[in-house]
Design a binder for these strands. Structure first.
Lengths: 363, 363
DNA sequence: GGTTAGCACTCTGTGTGGTAGAGTGCTAGC
DNA sequence: GCTAGCACTCTACCACACAGAGTGCTAACC
């Protein structure tokens, strides 16, 4: 789509677009032609810049809040920028050192790393940041329990080989005693420990395996397998977030509805459940601008996300959320560096055969 | 302390204080003497009211933002009001019915009830609301697992008899294989299943019990018992919250620092870990005004909290958080009703001997 | 003593021009 | 294709005034 505009946009116009974005991002004020020529070495006059800006506006890359104001990048302008113009440079050495220092200062658990990562990200980019704890993408059942809650309701609690846990209620049509349930759980634990969700499914279909055990076994097994599958897809991952105030203080979120949207995003988080599973299996930094992928709820918001982790075994997602007027280049560098750093830390720390830890609920 | 002022405050002055609070709460604007006599049947002139207001100000119960403005309640004024003047009346019948209706519409799990309770509270009081899932206050160990994470690091995952779970890392000075750990866990599970934290402590002190098992057993046991104890005290309870936007939109939280404080409160939640355990064992509705109990972090904020649940067995906390300018009477009625309602629902739903459910991580 | 009418006084909020200046688009010339 | 110059537009700000909201005080009244 951008290609359509590409051929009639000159190099200088691209440069001007970059400058407008850079200036607008840092000062949140429309950028004027004079401002551009006085701060940057363009070797043309402001009138020329004005002509170029008129063209950029025709291409839909910048807009003018009102006559006699400077220009502001449009969503399309940002998109063009991140795809064609931006060159994220690595984070400065001393900043990298400072960040690493914070991680090495105290010995921590994986989920504290993740929390720290979110906290550092939010501070380096001055936005909100989020991160999920590392989890295996191929969870094996370690153990599960069946607990009688009341007539016809059973709670299933599952522990994965990587320490992740999940709970779910089960409705059955008959009343079972805790003794019966424990016996069933013992029986099945012996048979299923170490299996993945697909292996459990397969096991269920073996004709011999379901004989002479309680009639609820099939539904228990289906639930088990579904729960494991959800854990693998990271659908139920808990999301740490930090620095909400950073973006709520931005001028664009002063209007109550905008604020409401952002808070929704972080209070209920169901928006993420569709995005995170898609990020977790992709390499590189993903940039979502405005409502591109999240519908109306994200107007005026951009997200920069990346996965981190050890290949197949253990992975999570981290990123920053900010206004569309966001320092994309810096965000990308920070997110990239942080994901690399977390991956390295995990690498060094988890060298056991199955490599895994979920979130720690109490510390 | 309030008693000092009590004797020289007349009935009418008390009435005027009530009116000022009521008006200020609903309109967020300083209340004038003329406004009081014209809207309420006081049978005195505004001049008299002014004299009374001067007295109330001397007593520290109201303040004047500037000369020639009306009066605004002080923190002390609110405190006096909730303790001596406020009569919370029950929630109107039709509102009660509407709320019950929402709970009965779908069959839900305990933690969804809790989420719904927070959501309804936040809407009825137009504030933020919070709630913790019901948990047993005397958790018994159902099962635990030891997972080898890396050299010298072990993860302990615990399942309570009520379905609560907790995880914690353990550092040991030697390398253990997963097989050794599983054997140890099996051995100890057989001995400890069904025990509370104090019973486990007692068991450890029996001289015979620790013979001929791995040397890490003592530290495992101590950790187990500590984790159970924390669960019992509800220190690690997950807090659902809802309606943050309701209070961030209030004029008093427009200043960035104030907003920051509120967001801190809900983003990290460590402030609550000291308050919730103290609420969980007390009956009735607790009101915290301004920074009375939470230090500077809560300036301009008030909290109305109550426990709910089934006596000793299963309990949680719920409440609302709003600006000090909060409809206390309505908040108290709503929180009281909601806690009663949740208790009833739990009563009907959890009739098994141990009555328990913790939060459900996946659904 | 408590109450009240009246009034002077204070402070805020709002409106009104008026103006400086920021920034543009356009034209004409280089 | 670039630029100097200029007319035009729109905003932001300031100064000023002024209406009105609300008070405290005083003096009189019951």
């Amino acid at each position: 789509m951008e290609q359509l505009h590409d051929y009639n946009i000159s190099d200088r116009q691209r440069q001007i677009l970059s400058i407008i974005i850079e200036e607008y991002v840092s000062h949140a004020r429309p950028v004027a032609s004079e401002q551009i020529v006085s701060s940057y070495q363009l070797n043309v006059s402001s009138a020329t810049v004005r002509n170029d800006m008129a063209e950029l506006e025709r291409a839909g890359l910048i807009v003018q809040p009102h006559t006699s104001a400077g220009r502001v990048p449009s969503e399309r302008g940002y998109r063009y920028f991140v795809e064609n113009l931006m060159r994220p440079k690595a984070l400065p050495q001393d900043e990298q050192r400072k960040i690493r220092h914070q991680f090495h200062q105290v010995e921590m658990e994986a989920d504290e790393w993740v929390r720290l990562a979110a906290s550092i990200l939010s501070r380096t980019v001055h936005s909100a940041a989020l991160a999920t704890a590392p989890r295996s993408t191929a969870v094996r059942l370690k153990h599960f329990e069946l607990l009688a809650i009341s007539d016809s309701r059973i709670m299933l609690v599952l522990v994965g080989h990587d320490g992740t846990v999940a709970q779910q209620m089960l409705h059955v049509d008959q009343d079972w005693s805790q003794e019966e349930l424990s016996a069933l759980a013992n029986h099945l634990n012996a048979a299923l420990s170490g299996k993945t969700s697909t292996e459990i499914e397969a096991w269920v279909n073996e004709p011999d395996n379901l004989q002479s055990i309680l009639t609820i076994a099939p539904s228990v097994l289906v639930t088990l397998s579904t729960m494991l599958a959800k854990l693998e897809r990271h659908e139920t991952a808990e999301i740490y977030h930090e620095g909400l105030a950073n973006i709520l203080n931005q001028p664009e979120f002063r209007q109550p509805e905008r604020m409401q949207q952002i808070l929704d995003l972080f209070e209920h988080g169901h928006v993420w459940t569709s995005i995170i599973p898609s990020i977790i299996h992709r390499d590189g930094v993903q940039i979502i601008i405005g409502d591109e992928a999240m519908g109306e709820s994200m107007r005026a918001c951009s997200v920069v996300l990346a996965r981190y982790g050890l290949g197949e075994h253990l992975a999570g997602v981290l990123g920053v959320v900010g206004p569309t007027r966001m320092p994309y280049s810096r965000s990308v560098s920070s997110v990239r560096y942080m994901s690399q750093l977390l991956s390295d830390l995990l690498q060094k720390s988890y060298n056991s055969p199955f490599s895994g830890q979920g979130e720690t609920q109490s510390e």
